[in-house]
Simulated scan of single mutants.
Amino acid sequence: MTTVRIPEDWPATEEQARAVQDDLRERVILDEPGPPPGTGQVTGVDVAYDDERDVVAAAAVVLDASSLDVVAEATAVGRVSFPYVPGLLAFREIPTVLAALDALPCPPGLVVCDGYGLAHPRRFGLASHLGVLTGLPTIGVAKNPFTFTYGDPATPRGSTSALLAGSEEVGRALRTRDGVKPVFVSVGHRVTLANACAHTLALTPEYRLPETTRRADALCRTALRETYSA
């Protein structure tokens, strides 16, 4: 397990963080298709917090995209690097998530975040932020629609509807199980929205949430518990 220090130049105020978002948002690439679903490797990242101790644990779990078998995994634990501010949550997580990715023994391939990319008030959620900093293709798969609106997709698995900010499509509601509440997919970096949805379906053969998210969630919670006994 890697122990992470907050970078010296990390934003300390909301104003500084928004300025970083404004700068990095210009570097998001939206016109690349991304890797074909079901090929190569795909990595899930997730975090768990202990707010009382001001600690965050991150996990990165690499799966074979075809079999969904675990190829590699890594964790990192550090201090929470920014206060809780809606729309700026990535600044609480990025240093520790980057450390977990850096600790992997193999290339991560596509990175799937438990959260948002373009489906963000400033069009720059964790998936976009992480993609720009690493250069990796990234998508966000969230459990809820945040502040956006959508029509209920049709009942069958694979059905979608637009996730909207006014008239702007910022992602899609995607039904990953027949008749089960959809997940909310958005582009992070270097992937099209159609491909992001296809990847999400490939990662959900049994459950509502992607296997990448399920495994990374379990691993980061374990890493957080282990900090108590370390």
Rank of each mutant, 00 (worst) to 15 (best):
T2L: 02
P7Y: 14
E8Q: 11
D9I: 07
P11M: 03
A12W: 04
E14R: 14
Q16G: 07
A17M: 04
Q21Y: 06
D22R: 12
R27H: 14
L30S: 13
E32N: 01
P35W: 15
G38R: 06
G38N: 08
G38C: 10
G40D: 11
V42G: 05
V42F: 09
T43K: 09
V47D: 02
A48Y: 10
A48G: 05
A48W: 03
Y49S: 09
R53P: 00
V56C: 02
V56P: 03
V61P: 01
D69L: 10
V71C: 01
A72C: 05
A72Q: 06
E73W: 08
T75H: 09
Y84G: 02
A90E: 08
A90L: 02
R92E: 13
T96Y: 10
A100K: 04
L101H: 12
P107V: 01
Y116C: 00
F124H: 13
F124W: 02
G125N: 08
S128F: 11
V132T: 14
V132R: 08
L133N: 09
G135L: 04
G135W: 15
P137C: 03
I139W: 11
N144Q: 05
N144I: 00
P145W: 12
F146L: 07
F148S: 03
G151M: 00
G151C: 00
D152L: 02
T155G: 02
G158A: 11
S159R: 07
T160G: 10
S161R: 09
L164E: 15
E168G: 02
E169N: 03
E169A: 07
L174H: 09
L174E: 10
H189N: 15
L193G: 07
A198V: 01
T200V: 08
E206C: 08
Y207T: 14
Y207F: 15
E211T: 14
R214H: 04
R215Q: 12
A218W: 04
A223V: 13
L224P: 00
Y228A: 12
S229H: 14
A230I: 03
